[in-house]
């Protein structure tokens, strides 16, 4: 009897909380903070530092969106999600934005009803092997034992690749990157496979990174990007154009250092429009005119975020590669702001 009564009380409490339920943008503004889903910890993309502050490339996207909407890059509640919980967390409204190196795939977009707002990192799956193994190509991996992180598109790509090349392998499914690293180093698997960026980050954490080599084959396309729920286009626009603003800012040379100076007015109409000096693009989305300025000031433009978190001068040491601006031969191409 007590049980049912208490449950009843819970429902009453839940009713009070559930009164809201309008558009995400209004929710976020009313709440005064953005709930952003990130990984439980992948150095360079999203991981808490020694003081428990989240930092990383994906975290930068969250902070930029928070800055654009609320004007405050610290107004973010980071919700660590696993491969298992991330989609539920987004679909059920626990988080407003999922920035957790998630691959844009057809079924996730169409079947699971999510909206990918763009690509913030073009990745691909690779293989990490010890040099001592004497392997120089993924084609020589027949019969190998391979450590995979579960809950990613990785295991699907792996199955496809080995099937296509008519090779055998033994998968060792592992929950977290940390454990995969241990098993790989102990020799419980010959190969560790995940996204190339993740391999670089993992290798960087080894005692002797030089003893291990990433094989040249990249076996899949992994466009990673932030995503929101289907059906709330206004909110999708906000996230999409914040990301575009960061990319465009790099193209036009707007950095966190000169954004103040440039917002006083320039002779480039495009920059003026982005920074809200000319026209009021922000009002069309229901944001302040200075939304993009705040987003860029939060952590810098795309290039700055990249260099600070995963670039060549960090332990992860990724080169821009496909993630360079289209003007430099990369794939980043922000649509025009007009």
């Amino acid at each position: 009897m007590t049980k049912t009564v208490t449950l009843g009380a819970l429902t009453v409490a839940a009713f009070a909380a559930g009164a809201a339920g309008a558009a995400t943008l209004d929710d976020v503004k009313a709440r005064g903070s953005l709930n952003c889903g990130v990984t439980t910890g992948l150095v360079g993309f999203a991981a808490p530092d020694a003081n428990g502050e989240w930092e990383g490339f994906d975290v930068g996207v969250c902070r930029a969106v928070a800055a654009a909407v609320l004007g405050d890059p610290t107004a973010v509640t980071f919700v660590p999600t696993t491969g298992k919980t991330r989609f539920t967390a987004l679909a059920s409204g626990e988080i407003d934005l999922l920035a957790r190196n998630t691959t844009w795939t057809y079924s996730r977009d169409v079947d699971l009803k999510f909206e990918f707002v763009g690509v913030n990192y073009y990745d691909g799956q690779g293989f990490l092997v010890p040099k001592a193994l004497g392997v120089s190509s993924a084609k020589e991996l027949s019969g190998a034992t391979i450590c995979i992180q579960t809950g990613t598109t990785t295991e699907l790509n792996l199955a496809d690749y080995f099937r296509k090349n008519n090779m055998e392998y033994q998968p060792v499914p592992i929950e977290t990157n940390g454990e995969a690293q241990q098993q790989y180093l102990a020799g419980a698997c010959d190969v560790y496979t995940t996204d190339a960026s993740g391999l670089a980050a993992t290798r960087a954490a080894f005692e002797t990174p030089g003893d291990h080599v990433v094989l040249p084959e990249i076996i899949s396309k992994e466009p990673l990007g932030p995503l929101v729920r289907h059906g709330d286009s206004e909110w999708g626009d906000v996230a999409r154009w914040t990301l575009n603003a960061l990319i465009a800012a790099e193209e036009y040379g707007i950095t966190s250092a000169n954004v103040e100076e440039l917002s006083a007015g320039t002779d480039s109409p495009e920059i003026d429009r982005i920074l809200g000096t000319e026209d009021n693009l922000g009002a069309m989305m229901g944001l302040e005119p200075t939304w993009a300025k705040a987003a860029i000031a939060a952590g810098g433009n795309y290039g700055e975020l990249f260099e600070k978190n995963i670039g060549e001068n960090t332990p992860i040491g990724l080169s821009r590669g496909l993630n360079a601006q289209w003007t430099d031969g990369g794939l980043l191409y922000a649509p025009p702001f007009r």
């Binding site: 909380a17 559930g18 809201a20 339920g21 298992k84 539920t88 967390a89 409204g93």
Partner: peptide, 17 residues
């Protein structure tokens, strides 16, 4: 625990956190 972690959110009113 999976229910708590993964699906319970579906059974609560929209917006409850």
């Amino acid at each position: 625990l999976f229910v708590a972690n993964v699906v319970l959110a579906y059974f609560l009113p929209p917006g409850t956190n």
